[in-house]
Design a protein around this nucleic acid. Structure first.
Lengths: 165, 165
DNA sequence: CAAAAGTATCTCGACATCAAGATATCCACA
DNA sequence: TGTGGATATCTTGATGTCGAGATACTTTTG
C-alpha cells in the first residue's frame, strides 16, 4: 500500500531528478510514524486521565522499582527534557497527588521524587492500555517481521544511545 | 549492540514480569529514533540558517513545482500544524524574505504563499545538506537492509496516511 | 435573489518548553 | 581545613504551538 512518503519521494523525483532522496524512504517514515504514534498515545492515555508527559515521568519512576523514587536529574536523562521542564512537571504531578518530593538523605542539594500509591496504579493502568493499542497497530506485521524491524531499528538507534549526546 | 530500549524492556521484565512488553521493541525505538533525528536535523539545518519548521514549509512549496506556491490551507495539511501556527510561520518567513503572500485571483478569501528565489535556493541547499547527513546515519545498514526497513515501516504508516486522520 | 451553511485565513490568550543563569551543596586536593 | 571547581535543582524570560473564536468571502438552497 502507498503512503505519504511514496508521494513525497515521487514529488522530489519530479522536481529534483538529479537528487538521490533514498534516505527519506527510511527516515521520513520514522519521523512520520512517530508523529502518528504520539497522537495515538495521547488518545490512549486520555482514557486514563493522563498526558503523555505524565506517563513518561510516572513510568520512569515505576521502572525504577520499589520504593519508586529517582532524583530529578535521573528523570531528565531518561525523558530527554531540560531541567526547567522537569521542575515544572514534578510540580504539576505533585499537585495531582501522583508523586511527592522528599529530601535526599545523602545529599542536601538534592531531592528524590517518589511515586505515590495512586501514581503507581495510574502508571500501571496506562501502560496496560498503551500496550493493548500498540499491539493492534503491530498486528499488520508477523511476529518475525516485528523482530526483524526491531533489530534494524536498533542498529540505527544504538549509536545515539551509546555515544554521549 | 545494546540500546536504551533493550534496557527499558529489561526493566519492565524485572518490575512487571506478568506483562508482555513486546510492542515496545518496535514502537519505542521508532519514537526514540525520531527524537534523535529531530536533533540531528536541527543541527544540519543550522548550517544553512534554517529552523526545522522553516525547512518544512519551504520544501512543501518547493515540491509543489513552479511557480512554487500553495495556499495556507494546503500547507497546513502537509505540515500537520494548526492554522494559527501556519499564519505565524508565514509571517516570519515573509519577514526573512523567503516567501511572499499573494492574493488568490480565484477566491478573495484566500491567499497564495509563494517561494521567493532566495527561499527556493535555501530550500535546495538545506535539502542537499540534510540528505548528506542522513546518508551517513544509514550507512550502518546495507542497501538491502534499508529497503527492507523502508518496506516494513510503510506497512505501519500506511493505515494512518490512507485513513483520514 | 436572499438567507444559511460552509470555507479560508487570521487574531488572541493560555501554556509547555527551552536556555541561561542563580543558588545551594558537595568533593578533591593542597 | 579551606578553597575552587563540579554538581543538583530551581527560577526567569522568551518563544512557538495550540485551540477557540472572529472576520470575510463563497456556495448552496429555497
Amino acid at each position: 500500500m502507498e503512503d505519504e512518503v511514496d508521494r513525497l519521494v515521487a514529488a522530489w523525483h519530479r522536481e529534483r531528478p538529479d537528487l538521490d532522496v533514498e534516505p527519506l524512504e527510511v527516515l521520513s517514515r520514522v519521523s512520520r510514524l512517530a508523529r502518528h504514534l504520539d497522537r495515538a498515545r495521547r488518545t490512549a492515555f486520555a482514557e486514563h486521565g493522563l498526558e503523555p508527559w505524565e506517563f513518561d515521568v510516572l513510568t520512569a519512576l515505576r521502572r525504577a522499582g520499589s520504593p519508586y523514587q529517582l532524583s530529578p536529574g535521573q528523570l531528565l536523562t531518561q525523558t530527554l527534557v531540560t531541567s526547567g521542564t522537569m521542575t515544572n512537571r514534578i510540580d504539576r504531578l505533585t499537585v495531582k497527588g501522583l508523586v511527592k518530593r522528599l529530601p535526599d538523605p545523602d545529599d542536601r542539594r538534592g531531592v528524590l521524587v517518589r511515586l505515590t500509591d495512586d501514581g503507581r496504579d495510574r502508571a500501571d493502568q496506562a501502560l496496560a492500555g498503551l500496550l493493548a493499542h500498540e499491539r493492534e497497530l503491530l498486528a499488520q506485521l508477523s511476529s518475525d517481521q516485528q523482530t526483524e524491524l526491531a533489530a534494524l531499528l536498533r542498529v540505527l538507534v544504538a549509536p545515539f544511545d551509546n555515544i554521549p549526546g
